[in-house]
Each structure stands twice: as structure tokens, then as C-alpha cells.
Amino acid sequence: MLHLDEVSKKFGGLPALDRVCFSVPRGRVTALIGPNGAGKSTLINCVTGVLEPTSGSIRFAAQQLVGRPPHAIARLGIARTFQNLKLFPRLSVLDNVLTGLTCEAGRSLTMAMLRLPYLRHRERQLKLRALEALDRFGLADKARLPVAVLAYGDKKRVELARACVAEPQLVLLDEPVAGLNADETAAIGEQLKRLRGAGQTLLLVEHDMELVMGIADQVVVLDSGRCIARGTPDEVRSNPLVLEAYLGQMEATA
């Protein structure tokens, strides 16, 4: 569904991504792992249009993504979460999730100002869908609260709900459990498993190995901008290059 072909990104001559190739198959969970500075975030930013790759192509369902602005990529059905939460603290939980349905809410200022009956009807339907999503992510009782007062774990779940509410074709998750305790991590893991069960295509960037090995169908390992391994969790776990990238780093820091 998502195909990266020879994607490179250089920052002032320094390669952050070096000819990365891999595919994200439909209905599967692909995990992207690698040590700090491996280029995982750069890759997500290239896919979502925040950065433009120096060379290479990124195709999504036969559409070239390189060169498109972020909002156009989002409208194709690619949703994402952010490593450092990007919620709207002054909006309520419900409204935050509703922003995930912006693509379907209409774009005309004039129509919105006139509040025509068809828009009111659509608005009601969007609200129902948002409430449904909140229910799925266990946030139903917090719908009316301003996001600012939520605990960190709840905020992470709100962002997950916002990314999934529109049932996008592909969801990019940038470290969904970073900074969470074991219980909260387990809860998010459950939710991701449920998404996977529902056939949602996911690209998951994560440090938490236990989580990755538990839910990924395919693991892609980046190191210093290069894709050094690709395969099932078991294959990757026993790959000597991967061990070196991780263990070598551990030895260096030890």
C-alpha cells in the first residue's frame, strides 16, 4: 500500500536517510525500529510531506507523495500521531477527536457561516462517529473535559483516537507509548492489537521492543539512515546486523 523506493534525505550534505526501500502491506502492522538518530522521524516526516526527500519516490496506492503538501497527503487517507503530543489543549476531548474528521466536514467558510441544514445534519453524524471512537478508546466519560486537564496517558489515547476516527487507510504512529508506564503501555498495546484485528494498516515507530515484537507483522530496522534489516520479528531478532547495531551501541555506552 505504501512503497518507499530509494528514499534519501540529506541535511546540508549529511545523509539522514540513505536509499531506504520498503513497503507497508495493506492490513498489516509494520514496525520501524532503530537506535536514536537512525532517521525514523525523518522518514515519517518525508512520508507525511513535512519534509521533502532529496531523492527517491514514495508511492501510496499508486499516487506519488513526494512533492505534495502535508494537507494533500492527509486527504489521501494517511493519518498520524506525533512523538511529542500535538493536541489542542483548549479544545475539549470530543472536539480534539472531531478535528480528525476535518477532511469530511466541508471547506467552505460561507457555507459554514450560514449553517445550512445539510451541514447541521453532517455535523451531528460526525459527532456520533467521534463519540463512537472515544468509546472504542475508553475515553467516553471524558468527552467534555478540556484536554489540558487530562493525564499524559489519556492524552496519548486522545491522539490515537483522533488519528483513527476517520478510518484512514494508513495510520503512522510515532512512538505511541513513549513516556508511559507499564500499565498504560499495556493498555495502548491492547488498543493497537484491536486496530490490527480490525484490519487497520499501521506503520509503527517505536522503541519499546516488547510492544513491537508483540504486534508487528513486519519489522524494518534503520541504522544511520540505512535500512539494515527487514523481516518478521523473529527473523529480525536473530539478525546479526541488528544485534550489532543495538548491542554495539550498548557496549559503546557501557
Partner: peptide, 27 residues
């Protein structure tokens, strides 16, 4: 009317965080 519509939420998103708003499909 505008701020209580989907368009208005898109604008509120824009005021909150431009990158996040763009990722949600706001031009």
C-alpha cells in the same frame, strides 16, 4: 456558526499547531 462548524475546528487546529492542522488535512 463558523466556529461551531467543522471548518471552525480546522481553524482552531491551525491556531493551536500548524503542523498538526496540516496533518489533519487543513490547507
Amino acid at each position: 456558526n463558523l466556529v461551531r462548524s467543522g471548518v471552525g475546528r480546522g481553524l482552531a487546529a491551525l491556531a493551536g499547531d500548524e503542523t498538526a492542522a496540516a496533518a489533519l488535512g487543513v490547507d
